[in-house]
């Protein structure tokens, strides 16, 4: 997975970048299955590997761009910043509980309550579904609103563009 991400960072052909992103998402989905998060894996495979790739390809098709124009040397300022941040984050993980530790604090709070009572309260055997759709129903509704807003935004950005192309070059002088 890290290899795919590195390849994505190095490759200059944008088509390859989009394809790498698809492979990356699919690997991530496989990783989620290993970690028992099957619902997340479904979503990642459908949305991350599917829709994101389609969106990227559509963008490339519309803009007809193939490769980045400049060959960039490794930028040392950003690289240094990245290494320092990474080191700080790794220092932060040293206090984390081990992977898979059942005594980790995250498992102690409300999670057991959902596991114990959600089937009685909602009648849905899949706890992820019952929390998502029932206990956090308003949040999921808000999420749908976010999608609607994003769709409106995309339509406004790209739809206006088409109209302006129709009635001639007024825009270029304004810009």
């Amino acid at each position: 997975m890290a290899v795919t991400a590195l390849a994505l960072a190095r490759v200059r052909n944008l088509f390859a970048v989009v394809m790498m992103s698809g492979i990356f998402s699919l690997t991530a989905a496989a990783l989620y299955v290993v970690q028992d998060a099957v619902d997340v894996a479904f979503t990642e495979a459908a949305v991350g590997a599917g829709i994101a790739t389609v969106l990227g390809l559509a963008t490339l098709a519309v803009t007809r761009s193939e490769a980045e124009k400049k060959v960039r040397a490794v930028a040392f300022g950003p690289l240094l910043l990245v290494i320092v941040t990474g080191a700080a984050l790794i220092y932060g993980t040293l206090d984390m509980p081990d992977y898979g530790d059942p005594a980790a604090p995250i498992h102690g709070h409300v999670a057991p309550r959902y596991l114990a009572d959600s089937e009685k309260e909602t009648g849905v055997p899949n706890v992820v579904t019952s929390v998502l759709a029932s206990y956090r129903g308003y949040d999921t509704l808000g999420e749908t609103t976010v999608i609607l807003t994003a769709a409106c935004g995309v339509l406004m950005l790209l739809g206006r563009n088409r109209r302006q192309k129709r009635n001639a070059p007024t825009r270029d002088s304004a810009a």
Partner: peptide
Amino acid sequence: NPLPSVLILTAIVVGIATLALGLALAV
């Protein structure tokens, strides 16, 4: 633990929405 899964399901969907908006801006 089911709770991280729930949070991340929401986050994935919001993430694709921002990606779509960003790509539209790039166009």
